[in-house]
Simulated assay, not measured.
Amino acid sequence: MANPTQLISRAHDLCEKRGVRLTSQRERVYEIIASSKRAISAYELLDMLRETEPQAKPPTIYRALDFLLSQGFVHKVESANSFIACCLPGHEQHCSQLLICDVCSAVEECHTDDLSSALQEKASNLGFSVSHHVVETHGVCHACNVAQKKMQ
């Protein structure tokens, strides 16, 4: 997992270059996501945001998520309807490969250029223009594997 402070600093730099605003609410939502060790749902985000902003409503979260997604700062984990911080903000063309633990819900983003290239080549051969792609792989993380073996 990338350092949340570094991610937020990078987001500020990118927003300044792009001429967009990372408002305090957007930054707080991003900070919550970046600090989480697992994917986090919109309603979990709302509950956490309400600790500092009791008036926050679902549209607050969805607007912030729309912004963070459009800027490439977070990824949506489609299979879990949740969100994680992108470990490479500013690299919009990278293929996101997510390893999702079905036991503890931890999500690790990794990058394998061979997989990305193979997907891009296959799409190109089919005349398909890729705007972005996310590969989700479900299984059991190392920590949960170790814990399960100890219980046996």
Rank of each mutant, 00 (worst) to 15 (best):
E92I: 12
C110A: 14
E53I: 11
C101V: 01
A106W: 05
H111C: 07
R38W: 03
I61K: 00
E109T: 04
S105I: 00
G90D: 06
C104I: 00
I33T: 11
R63N: 04
Q97T: 15
Q55D: 14
H91W: 11
M48H: 05
T52K: 14
Y62R: 03
E51K: 15
C87H: 13
N81H: 13
Q55L: 12
A106N: 10
T112L: 10
S82Q: 05
C87W: 10
E44H: 10
A85W: 01
C104M: 03
Y43S: 13
V103L: 05
T60W: 02
I40Y: 05
S79N: 08
S70K: 15
H94E: 13
R50E: 06
T112Y: 07
L45A: 00
P59G: 05
G90H: 07
L69D: 07
L46Q: 02
E44C: 12
H94T: 12
L68E: 04
E92D: 14
H75S: 09
E51W: 06
V107F: 00
S70V: 07
S96G: 10
L88E: 12
R50H: 03
L88G: 06
N81R: 14
Q97P: 10
P89N: 08
Q55Y: 11
E92R: 14
K57I: 11
I61P: 01
I32N: 07
L99M: 13
A85T: 04
E51T: 15
I33S: 08
T52E: 14
R38N: 11
V77H: 09
E78F: 14
A80F: 13
G90T: 03
V107M: 09
E51N: 07
V107Y: 02
L46E: 00
S96V: 07
S96P: 02
L46A: 03
Q55H: 13
I100V: 02
Q93D: 12
L88W: 13
F73L: 05
Y62L: 02
I100Q: 00
S79W: 01
E92H: 12
I33K: 08
E109C: 02
H111V: 13
E51H: 09
A34E: 10
L69P: 05
V103T: 12
S105C: 05
T112Q: 12
I84R: 03
C86W: 00
H75D: 10
Q97N: 10
L68C: 02
S105D: 03
E109G: 00
K57L: 11
E109D: 01
C110W: 12
I40Q: 06
P58M: 02
T52H: 11
P59S: 06
Q93V: 11
K76T: 05
H94S: 12
A56I: 09
I84Y: 08
V74H: 06
C95W: 02
Y62V: 06
D47A: 15
P59W: 06
L69Q: 11
L99Q: 15
I100C: 03
P54W: 06
